[in-house]
Design a protein around this nucleic acid. Structure first.
Ligand SMILES: NC(=O)c1ccc[n+]([C@@H]2O[C@H](COP(=O)([O-])OP(=O)(O)OC[C@H]3O[C@@H](n4cnc5c(N)ncnc54)[C@H](O)[C@@H]3O)[C@@H](O)[C@H]2O)c1
Ligand SMILES: NC(=O)c1ccc[n+]([C@@H]2O[C@H](COP(=O)([O-])OP(=O)(O)OC[C@H]3O[C@@H](n4cnc5c(N)ncnc54)[C@H](O)[C@@H]3O)[C@@H](O)[C@H]2O)c1
Lengths: 215, 215
DNA sequence: AGCCTCTTGTGAACTGATGCACAAGGTGTC
DNA sequence: GACACCTTGTGCATCAGTTCACAAGAGGCT
């Protein structure tokens, strides 16, 4: 119904999964997909799929399902995947290099256009097609290349400084891998990916099960 | 109150953050920390800190705060961080190498003890101290080294097969980076870290702001 | 001792998300 | 045209998590 009414955060987080699920349907071929099928493809349940899609509009046909191509178009539209958002990787270490070398990002509209690193041996080099600059040039890079998203893969100690520099340069979207809390103005969106924490959550459940197993 | 009553999932996910925040307090020195301070250190709000900690027990002192060392001990206890959970990295590519080379995991009780890869050139080599084996040896590795957690950093196509092999070997905790849905028995916990999806969520908000900006 | 100040622990309201269950509405068949 | 059969869209109940607000307790000061 609502062509662009507020979309719940939880729904936004699932739209990319639906889009990925729709890759199972060849482009150009007319095909319909039911909420049940799409639920399987995205790893969620069917009721959620229908409720999520209803936030975008009523694009399904009762008794039939959704037109795969049209649905793909609508979700793409809602997510704004037609846009290309250039990314700068800050900290070209082990993780930064893996990210820069990853093709999956460019494919989805997030090309890594530049990197920074404080190591003099790395500055000025080009790694996997990505030029590495000094951290001080960050503001310049952002302006010159129209960077929209900053990735922080520096050591934890340098993360806050890097975030500050990104914000100062006008970047409002940050993905950080540093295991530390970052502060930034409210209008800046920070997504923190903390792998050690993920492992600790797995560890908690293992620990729990072990205790439950004894008796 | 409840020494080990069910701890809400959302709380479990934050306990590692509190533990990290407590690193700001030197070991061996008696210090108290208030829910306000800890909230800052962990990047959440104070009410949440208090409610979360109340699930572990009443370890605070009204009017004073929490004893930092004792609190650290109690959270560690709840999370079971005294345990060491050996990890196997499946897929020693760009990402797998970064993970294997990362010291932060070993420090927290998650040593990467082995890896697998299907590339004949990599099998038999040792990368950053981690021996690389053929995928077929996975079951053997798990049993021999007591692997508790499997990390999937293979291409998406190989992810399900790798998950199946892990499950067959008795691994019940999996962290996957492959952009695909994995199916496994209910008792297996899978945490899927999907970086492209994270970027798309950032992209959605950028897109939204851009639309709102025009008028 | 009495009082003041501080911070915890928690009941209760609120918010957001989930999942059920079914009417509404479309397709195809007889 | 009527009927049988699907699958969507959604109202509603439920659940988990968050936030508020304050009484209960602890320490310190006079
Ligand atoms: N490697 C992993 O698998 C992994 C896993 C989880 C978390 N992390 C986190 O990601 C971050 C990076 O990890 P890594 O393994 O790549 O570390 P790394 O040490 O290999 O790389 C860090 C890089 O950042 C550079 N750097 C330092 N200060 C900088 C600055 N001010 N500006 C720009 N660059 C700077 C260093 O020169 C180095 O090249 C760390 O915070 C780490 O805790 C890494
Ligand atoms: N590199 C990144 O920054 C990044 C970011 C997001 C997601 N991912 C995902 O993580 C996964 C790995 O990414 P990558 O960049 O390291 O890819 P990569 O191609 O560099 O590495 C994949 C490795 O897996 C090995 N492999 C293939 N089949 C295997 C099997 N059956 N068993 C064991 N090993 C096997 C390959 O030989 C290769 O070494 C992919 O699914 C990718 O989509 C990577």
């Amino acid at each position: 119904m609502a062509p662009l009414g507020r979309i719940p955060e939880a729904t936004v987080a699932r739209l990319p999964l639906y889009l990925r699920g729709l890759d199972a349907f060849p482009v150009g071929v007319t095909a319909t997909v039911s909420s049940d099928e799409l639920a399987d493809l995205a790893g969620v349940n069917a009721a959620k799929v229908r409720k999520d899609l209803s936030h975008l509009g009523t694009y399904g046909t009762r008794g039939v399902g959704y037109d795969a191509a049209f649905l793909r178009f609508q979700i793409s539209q809602a997510l704004g995947v037609a846009n290309v958002w250039p990314v700068v990787v800050c900290g070209m270490g082990n993780l930064g290099r893996a990210l820069a070398n990853h093709t999956g990002f460019t494919d989805r509209g997030f090309p890594v256009v530049a990197a920074t690193d404080s190591d003099p041996d790395k500055i000025g080099t080009v790694v996997d097609g990505v030029p590495v600059h000094a951290p001080g040039e960050l503001g310049d890079i952002v302006r010159r290349l129209g960077v929209a998203i900053g990735v922080i893969s520096t050591p934890a100690e340098a993360a806050q400084g890097t975030a500050d520099a990104l914000v100062a340069a006008g970047v409002t979207s940050i993905m950080s891998f540093a295991p530390t809390v970052l502060s930034a103005p409210d209008e800046v969106e920070i997504r923190s990916v903390d792998l050690a924490t993920e492992l600790q959550i797995l560890g908690f459940h293992l620990h729990r099960d072990r205790i439950a197993g004894d008796s």
